[in-house]
Amino acid sequence: MQQPEGFTVSEKEDYVCLLKKSLYSMKQSPRQWYKRFDSFMTSHDFKRSSFDSCVYFKKNSDGSFVHLLLYIDDMLIAAKDKREIRKVKAQLSEEFEMKNLGPAKKILGMEILRDRKVSKLYLSQKEYIEKVLCRFNMQSAKPVSTPSAAHFRLSSALSPQSDDEIEYISHVPYSSAVGSLMYVMVCSHPDLSYAISAITRYMANPGKEHWKSVQWILRYLRGTTDVCLQFGRTRDGVIGYVDADFAEDLDRRRSLTGYVFTIRGCAISWKATLQTTVALSTTEAEYMAITEACKKAIWLKGLFSELNEDLKISTVFCDSQSVIFLTKDQMFHERTKHIDVRYHFVRDIIARGDIVLSKISTHESPADMMTKSLPITNFEHCLDLVGVHC
């Protein structure tokens, strides 16, 4: 650290201070805080998850578990016995200055709502979304029924060409709006994945049409502020759905990967992103998408196995029969040997039985909304499949 003003040592003005303790806002501060918290948790018999370093758990003598999830200095504690929760809180209070906010109602802008009569839990961002709409003067906008429309064909050719367009877009809060929408999508709105994937490609040089697409998403949120993720008790375990849209990117003709994973019928993980290489056919695009989905499935299975959930096999559904054949043998070797070896590892995963790949109708796959703009009827059906309800 540079020598503070008024405490500079004469003839050693170019010297710096060696810190014995981390200071707030410096680069090493988060690391030092985490190391201290981690050592405290491990000293109290908690184990750190090998799949997520911010998840801690402890198994009690009666076989029950206590789980603690950390996000910087905010945390959630879960256990079947409230006495165990109070015990952990007391231990944390002895070591750290902390506030006990009681039963979890809100964290990181997400509201946690419970209906104990029907054993339902809801995750909502209504308050945050309303703030975003006010921030960008869209609180009175006319709502639309889907986050993306077929008439939006975004490409870099729509970036500003004239001085007037450049002047106009310089006054548009494009990056700020996209960042706010991304947080909504990441936390509680898998329905925004496809639309957000499209608008984030033009952050460096957005045009009027790109901004209209952002406003369209805000108009969609204007009519769906009450939408939330609904968790309940069902017999279903972790199920994945994956889809791909061939050559969706108009600039580089890369395909789009979309997947969503549900547990007990509610979405817990989702993604819509352009593939890193250009696919030569729909089968190749689907094959690369399945590989990415299986990587996520393996991670989820490992995480849940640590959290005392028996998930020996995960099922991933796709709508391409040819891709399912391709993952099981090399019958199309001459037409697929150019595919990067990083995508072929899925064959070993399926051969070992770690992941089960099954066929599903396109109309019954919620991943369909992750790769394209859908009519309102199909879109609402996809939302229902992943537990997104008003």
Rank of each mutant, 00 (worst) to 15 (best):
P366D: 14
I376C: 09
K82L: 06
S43Q: 07
Y128E: 03
F345L: 08
E248V: 01
L221N: 03
A104L: 15
R342G: 02
K87Q: 06
S93C: 04
E292D: 13
E94A: 09
L69W: 04
E167S: 14
I196E: 06
K12Y: 09
G102V: 01
D38K: 11
I355L: 07
L274T: 04
D243W: 07
A244D: 09
E284T: 01
H210G: 09
A272V: 04
L280G: 11
L374V: 10
D164T: 13
D236Q: 14
F261C: 05
F136K: 01
P173F: 12
A195C: 02
D163M: 14
N378L: 11
S281A: 04
S314G: 08
Q28A: 06
W216P: 02
S25Q: 07
E248P: 00
L250W: 04
Y202L: 04
K105F: 00
L192A: 02
A297H: 05
Q28V: 06
H171A: 14
Q215A: 00
L154F: 10
S322H: 06
I85A: 05
N137G: 01
K372R: 14
Q330L: 07
M182Q: 14
I376P: 01
P103A: 10
T273W: 00
D245Q: 11
Y202C: 02
K27L: 03
V260D: 12
S255C: 08
V186K: 07
K208A: 14
F152Q: 05
R335T: 06
L221G: 01
E13K: 12
P4F: 11
C390Q: 15
D52P: 02
C390M: 10
S156H: 11
K80R: 08
T225G: 06
D348K: 05
R222W: 02
R252G: 09
G207I: 10
L76Y: 00
V186Y: 04
V346C: 05
A150T: 13
K337A: 04
S305N: 15
K117S: 15
A297G: 10
W211N: 08
Q139F: 07
I349M: 03
L68S: 02
K106S: 10
C318I: 11
V184Y: 00
P206C: 12
T362S: 15
K59H: 03
P173W: 13
L326G: 04
G387F: 13
T336H: 08
K27V: 03
L326D: 08
K126F: 00
R116K: 13
L374A: 08
N100F: 02
